[in-house]
Design a protein around this nucleic acid. Structure first.
Lengths: 350, 350
DNA sequence: CTGAAAGCGCTTACAG
DNA sequence: CTGAAAGCGCTTACAG
């Protein structure tokens, strides 16, 4: 009668002339022993009727859910795409289905998704992507997570999420940016500009702080006017760079807090006929796969994106030995490529 | 006792001093009327206990599932990332959760995922990415899908999937490649080479056929030795290009069947000091976002990737009026950028 | 309008 | 080893 008429275990049992208990044992019970003859009959019936257990019924009856939830800002951003790839790999290895949500950087939607994931009784929830430095948000998210955690749910996060009591993998945002600053200083740069994303994002804040600290170690100071904020996207980087240019570009080196923004910046520079690195050096952060193929190839801080995704999934899948928070730090390595040069090289340029 | 002790509807009902039926009606029943006083009590109790309905129980009891399944080859590939972005957008608008599976181009795994999605009783399944031209695979997939469809499940596909009775959105692979060929011919090219992916993929086959037909219209013929097959990735394109170079590059124009492969090809060419487009022209297919930022910017066939994803999700969400298959064609538009030029320009190049 | 009860499709002690 | 039965947490006719 209902359009949704799937084959049920009971039908299999009937066809195989056994009880549903037995059918259940052969089809999804662990390694419980069942007489071969019965086992064969059940398997034959299941195959013949193309039986697929109803995962909802299984979950309800006590079987653990085979799904995990992942919430990120935007799957189509290469940074998240790379991390999610790592997540998918270990999920696949564990026969887990991934429910992926893109919040498009809407903090409220992020919480709404966690709530849906909670309703789905996902066995684990991964929070990928920067946290928000916002009291209300923190509180709302913590409130949403608490009952989930109390109910045995597992949560892991990537990046710094203030006050969230969960395991996490922390990219070296601060120290990476500081190291980059030092490399840039060693090239001879003294005047810098920064293309930044929304300062509410912890990732942005951390990279900015690190970069500033790195410069400070050489007595170089970054004025607020040297920082332009824009959306965390390629177009955001493009717009920010244009803004900088229109204000009269005085820096010899521009640091974009993400590679994606750096790509936009490079385009803006190209459009204005400003040569990189001859007239200005550009550096990014993340080392997303594409940047090595740009011309000039981008200097950046390499993060093990795939590994970060794998690790986050692993953290969420394994029980914490003690019940204390586990933190896995992902190192950042400065990779110097051709988008940066010494400022003195300017005169020698094309 | 169990670690997984979530708050249940019964507890809410008890706290609000109403029946579970009433609690259910206010919390998830449609617009059924409930005395305001009771309604308030229930809502207060639910809020206080941070109640989240168990989606499995809801689904089992008859409520429709709020999840859809999407299976693609690899989320981290920019082509799929862009399409999935479109999918996510309309899914979000419809308050649907997306279960995303990456098959990493493993045909068997693709079927296994459909089976899992079926078990999850996803309300719809999207097959994104090329089908396989393989009898056994076709049969296995059709067998997997049949009971799902019969049970009221909805399926939509992107790209050509031979013999699958489902709605689909078809990118203009053949005509787009043919149009590209004509444009390239009009530039004056007569010697071509193709960097191709696995020929079992319908997308590869269609683009190859289209390109070949386009050339044929001008009497130019593509020999089998002018085609190099490789993995459908950036590195695949890189390797294929190297192979071509090692064989002595005779073509004046190279067509990579995807932008991703073209990116690898461009890198290989750069490493060998071969100038593009001065010594050889390069064209791709898809127009993934990054290619306009390459140097030289890539000539390609633009597909409305976001729209394709949105459309696929829409097809899967809306009932087919008649019960006949719906096919939505996505046009491909040749976009000429700076990676292509006339072969005669060679002498004038750097 | 509201409550008691059946039923969704499984799994898992509990008895044979 | 195998079956009958209870129970997972909801929703939805069916009666008041």
């Amino acid at each position: 009668m209902s359009a949704r008429s799937h084959v049920t275990l009971e039908e299999i049992a009937r066809a195989a002339e056994v009880s549903v208990a037995t059918a259940s044992r052969v089809l999804s019970g662990g390694p419980r022993y069942v007489r071969p003859q019965l086992r064969d009959r059940v398997e034959a019936a299941a195959a013949k009727l193309a039986y697929t257990p109803n995962a909802h019924a299984q979950a309800l009856a006590g079987g653990a859910s085979r799904t995990v939830g992942v919430v990120c800002h935007d799957v189509s951003d290469p940074y998240f795409a790379a991390i999610v790839r790592g997540v998918m790999q270990v999920a696949g290895d564990n026969h887990l289905l991934v429910m992926l949500a893109s919040t498009f950087r809407d903090a409220e939607r992020e919480i709404a998704y966690v709530s849906m994931l909670r309703a789905q009784r996902a066995r684990a929830i991964l929070l990928i992507g920067s946290g928000f430095q916002d009291r209300d948000w923190e509180h709302a998210m913590a409130t949403e997570l608490a009952p989930y955690l109390a109910g045995g749910g597992r949560v892991a996060a990537v990046s710094r999420h203030p006050n969230l009591p969960v395991d996490c993998v922390l990219p070296a945002n601060r120290s990476g940016a500081a190291a980059l600053a030092r490399v840039l200083l060693s090239l001879g740069h003294r005047r810098f500009a920064v293309l930044s994303g929304p300062p509410v994002l912890t990732t942005v804040a951390d990279r900015l702080t690190g970069f500033r600290n790195g410069l400070a170690s050489a007595g170089v100071c970054l004025a607020d006017t040297d920082i332009v904020h824009g959306p965390f996207t390629r177009d955001g980087g493009h717009a920010a760079m244009r803004e900088l240019i229109s204000r009269g570009l005085r820096a010899t080196c521009v640091f974009a807090v993400t590679d994606v923004m750096a790509i936009g910046a490079l385009a803006a520079l190209r459009e204005h006929g400003i040569a990189v690195p001859d007239e200005v050096s550009v550096a990014g952060f993340d080392d997303i796969p594409i940047v090595r193929d740009l011309t000039p190839a981008l200097t950046t801080v390499a993060l093990p994106l795939l590994r970060i995704g794998e690790r986050a999934m692993e953290l969420a899948l394994t029980e914490d030995p003690g019940s204390r928070r586990r933190v896995y730090r992902a190192a950042g390595e400065v990779v110097v490529r051709s988008s940066t040069a010494s400022p003195s090289d300017r005169r020698a340029g094309t």
